[in-house]
Write a protein that binds this DNA or RNA. Sequence first.
RNA 1: GGGGGUGUAGCUCAGUUGGUUAGAGCGAUCGCCUGUCACGCGAUAGGUCGAGGGUUCGAGUCCCUUCACUCCCGCCA
Length: 594
Amino acid sequence: MNKYRSHKCNELRHKDVGNKVLLAGWINKKRDHGNLLFIDLRDNYGVTQCIIDKENKNFSILEKIQLETVIRIEGNVIDRSNDTINKDLDTGEIEVVIESFDILGNCKELPLPVFSDQEYAEEIRLKYRFLDLRRKKLHENIILRSKVISFIRNEMIKMGFLEFQTPILTSSSPEGARDFLVPSRLNPGKFYALPQAPQQFKQLVMVSGFDKYFQIAPCFRDEDARADRSPGEFYQLDLEMSFVEQEDIFDIVEKLLVKTFKNFSSKKLMFEKFPRISYANSMMKYGTDKPDLRNPLIIQDVTEIFLREDVKFDIFKKLINSGSKVRCIITKNTKNKPRSFFDNIDKWAKDQGASGLAYFTFEKEQEISAKGPVGKFFSSEALKEIMKKTNAENGDSIFLACSKEEELKKITSLAREKIARDLDLIDENLFAFCWIVDYPMFELDDKTKKIVFSHNPFSMPQGNINEINFNKPLDIIAYQYDIVCNGIELSSGAIRNHIPELMYKLFSIAGYDKKIVDKKFTGMINALSYGAPPHGGIAPGIDRLIMLLANEKNIREVTMFPMNQNAQDLMMNAPSYINEDQLKDLGLFLKVKK
RNA sequence: GGGGGUGUAGCUCAGUUGGUUAGAGCGAUCGCCUGUCACGCGAUAGGUCGAGGGUUCGAGUCCCUUCACUCCCGCCA
């Protein structure tokens, strides 16, 4: 028999009454009645109430013992009387009368209570992560994470994918995020980079003839953190397949995600066949390429109407003449909303850095009229035209924003979310997946006005290769796609460009000549020249996927040992200074003073 | 790099218009209590009010600087 325990803390039932048992775990909670002491003993699996009275020689020691001390108890299982059964506990029908006990691990005074639902300062939680992880919510999130990953792994294997590991020390690439760099001792002055994703390796796996690859892959990007973005490192379900078209990938991923979300959440899926929305369409209707489809509001362009003679909205007219556009959001049946509802949204828009949101409500007595601060600028005819164009009805309201394209997308996209939240239009019990497809191959860099890859430089352009007009690079559409769920970007993927000549051509448009491509992407370009299969893939973000399943707003809540916003591990004290010998070994010296 | 929020006891927080000795709950310590499951009751200890500077007769409170944590923008193919 195991020397520490005969049962786990969730196991004992009425049938065990009369047996002598060994239990080991943490002291979750004590209730001291002076001559009678209750101890809730907790382990990974559950809680068992243990009891001791002052007749026992151990009573006074146990009475004084700190919470979270690890003990082993030996005792007898007894029934609880009917009125003391605890239905909230798996083991609530019994309790264990303590005969003897040992302390297995002492505990100092706690910096944060483990038994509590209270929230705590992030700093303390991260420094004492091992205590935080004992707490119910976080403990369960991490267990969920483990189960989801096992499930995904099984499903992938069932679908014929092979799991491979790819290097962690690799080479820096010029595209994408900032790299984490590792100095090479054997090659002084040279650096490895940690992979931002196993992108090139997984394509090389395809060229190597393995057909279907996946990996729960760590990815490293040295960029600033957000609530849904860990600083430094995160995990992707990286996958790649040979001899496939876009729809083959969609089919696999839809199956996997539908199964996973049905298995691990009670929330409903809005679509089991995810809608395909083109990038251009998404930008128009939602102002973003990660739309939350639970939100019924859409953005519409009404620029033309503001050019009419019978619309006297001079500020907008002026802006339109200097290149701005007008977009609107219609809200259904909001005529009875108080003035404060509209003004709050206008004020909110100003706080976001926009010039505000104009608004009015369509009303009808004899004629259609507009109620609201800017209503007077519109003739009845013009209002009818707006209603026709936007499908607005009597009693609906309209929010209007006017500015240059980029700014306009940003504010209308945010306003769409803000207004829907204020009107409580978003069903929190839904998952709304969609595919965003047809991304442009290139885009114009705002600052430099140069043409850059808009997503992945290895994506395949759409259409017949011989008919692509390289003189209009901004019009080239790629087989590039994202999965979005509830407004969160879950993954990004593409059918890859496996034709070297085409690759050189596309890189040259982005300003990389053949020599640079040969040098920076040696392995890839070389491999594509020796018989590369057409292939494509995608990489759903594991952490975000689990955030959605665990219903968490912050990625730290589903990460076992996260770093803080400044990319520091407060528990392990990373990053840290290294000693002179280590620097010397690497051929480095520091310019920055410690 | 920029903007917002927070910082008061071990933990979670309150602290009014600048005014006596900075409070509460949980936790800790001590005492009472044999059926609790957020046990109850009583007492005690515990404070560089994030740090530094300034205004003032007087600063937790007002001003300036700075630090930490956090959210957002930039950034994230």
